[in-house]
Nucleic acid binder design. Structure first.
Lengths: 181, 181
DNA sequence: GTCTATAAAAAGATAGAC
DNA sequence: GTCTATCTTTTTATAGAC
């Protein structure tokens, strides 16, 4: 922990970017090394196998999510609003990590799947006290899932059909009314 | 069209099943041929390349979606309710095809991505007249996206965190109230 | 239409120099 | 820590018999 080598982080960044921009099939060791500006041997010094590389991504995801949970919990505008808004800001490190993990999970990576399931549970625990009942919680989480689903489909390409700016505010307002006591 | 060979359909079924059950990485030509009970050569007679196999899946998806759109449009219980309910029934042919296409899209298949985007637009056009405004439409579509996202994460394995049975009915009721005129 | 055998390419991983 | 070179395995695709 403490201070991970720069090159190691660069490799993770490159791996994550390829996953987001091109998809799981294109996120090979070769392509990752090239994008990170190192040789395959250089990459393998930091991550001894493809699985180690995937685990590295998931470990970093976990760190980012823990920070994000704190930010959600202490949001002045309210937990639900902040949570939904952060589900569409698809440029933050944590959002990128989630989309990358989603792509790994769809490829068949069981660990990525478990990570995403765990994150969703943590979100649920955080939001539950702020909504009326279990149905309202389902609503909030499913809208967030939907936002991430679209982010994952669009990669970092052209903007998808997901609401932005004022439309997003209107959506958040609607969900808040429907979900809150 | 008219009457596609049985073996061809078997191959598509096998390919789809592997995508759903194990993920895109495991859906190789070899694994597909084995699961379909044919040799690799036999498979290649029907689909001359991996891309042709993927296109075959997407072509079938398109057929199933057209049928599904008719069913949604004529649903007695209402378009929104039927649409949401059918977004969780993850066992119908059309739902399986959507989840399989989602996995291809996440792998980096541009055609699968375009198909899913087109389907979402068709859903939007169908539902738009039945909801209050653009925000309500966003809400309905995002909840559906969320349901599919969870279906795609869970594959056909153990039941995920998505509401079922009476919880689902409550959710549908909540969305209807929030979305309708 | 389906098979076996085989080629060709891509991906993951090892060895050892620097 | 990073590199090049090489090996192994996997995956896609071809050729041709039946």
């Amino acid at each position: 922990m403490s201070r991970p080598p720069v090159a190691r982080e660069n490799v993770l960044d490159a791996f994550e970017s390829i996953l987001i921009d091109k998809g799981e099939r294109f996120a090979t060791m070769d392509a990752t090394a090239k994008a990170a500006g190192v040789s395959k041997g250089g990459l393998l010094y930091h991550f001894a196998s493809k699985q180690a590389l995937e685990e590295g991504l998931l470990a970093r995801l976990d760190l980012l999510v823990q920070e994000d949970l704190d930010a959600i919990a202490s949001a002045k505008e309210g937990v639900v609003a902040y949570f939904l808004r952060s589900s569409t800001t698809s440029g933050t490190p944590v959002d990128r990590a989630i989309v990358a993990a989603t792509r790994l999970a769809q490829g068949g990576d069981a660990a990525a799947n478990a990570s995403l399931r765990g994150i969703r549970e943590q979100w649920a625990d955080l939001i539950r006290p702020h909504v009326r009942d279990a149905t309202a919680l389902d609503l909030v989480l499913l809208v967030s899932d939907g936002l991430y689903y679209n982010a994952a489909l669009d990669g970092s390409g052209v903007a998808g059909p997901v609401p932005q700016a004022s439309d997003l505010e209107a959506l958040i307002a609607l969900v808040k009314v429907a979900a809150r006591d």
